[in-house]
């Protein structure tokens, strides 16, 4: 009973801080209300005995939000995000999309005939989820992972302003001429 109550409070907190993202008038507050929403979700996962998933959600979302704060404040037209600004655009359209999505999901949750658990509860639910998602597809996952990594490296290589020929000269034999010196003698 207590657990259910705490879970309900966490759920409400996640929704309320999620709403706050669009109510507050500062970039920093919006970012960190979103983080608060994710943290509430992470703690809810912890309560459901999904320790690894819950902690990973907290860990990843924190770092993600911190980096997002950097970029949002860097790229917004309002320098440093210090001036109050509105967080919503296209209010009418987004209200329609939000209401429709909410109705579809709620109707789905309450009308779908969820299956009952056939066997006993697994000792380690995380391992079970991992087995279910990855078990038969491990090779695919490994290949996809390497492809994703290659895509990221290639994307950065294509997007970078200064390649190795700019740094080391046409014959790659010059001392590097970098605007910001690194920590290693290269």
């Amino acid at each position: 009973m207590t657990e259910l109550l705490v879970l309900a409070v966490l759920g409400a907190a996640a929704v309320c801080t999620g709403v706050l993202v669009f109510v507050v008038d500062s970039m920093a507050r919006a970012t960190f209300s979103l983080l608060a929403s994710f943290l509430a979700t992470g703690v809810a996962l912890l309560l459901m005995d999904l320790a690894y998933l819950g902690l990973l959600t907290i860990l990843m979302m924190t770092i993600e939000m911190a980096i997002m704060a950097v970029f949002m404040i860097m790229l917004m037209m309002n320098p440093a995000g210090l001036m109050p600004m509105t967080m919503v655009h296209n209010t009418r359209g987004s209200v329609v999309v939000g209401v429709v999505a909410f109705v579809v999901l709620t109707v789905g949750v309450w009308t779908v005939d969820w299956p009952d658990r056939p066997g006993p509860r697994p000792a380690d639910a995380t391992a079970q989820v991992g087995e279910a998602i990855m078990g038969d597809y491990m090779l695919v996952m490994i290949v996809v992972g390497v492809v994703l990594l290659a895509t990221m490296v290639a994307g950065i290589a294509l997007a970078t302003h200064r390649g190795r020929y700019d740094r080391f000269g046409p014959d790659l034999d010059r001392d590097p001429d970098d605007p910001v010196r690194g920590g290693l003698p290269r």
Partner: peptide, 27 residues
């Protein structure tokens, strides 16, 4: 928990948010 090592990691990662906010707060 079954993920204590991640617990420590998460506590330390939350410092990213805390320290950035510490710098942001005073304006």
């Amino acid at each position: 928990t079954s993920a204590d090592l991640v617990w420590f990691n998460a506590a330390e990662a939350l410092l990213w948010a805390a320290v950035w906010l510490l710098g942001w707060g005073p304006n």
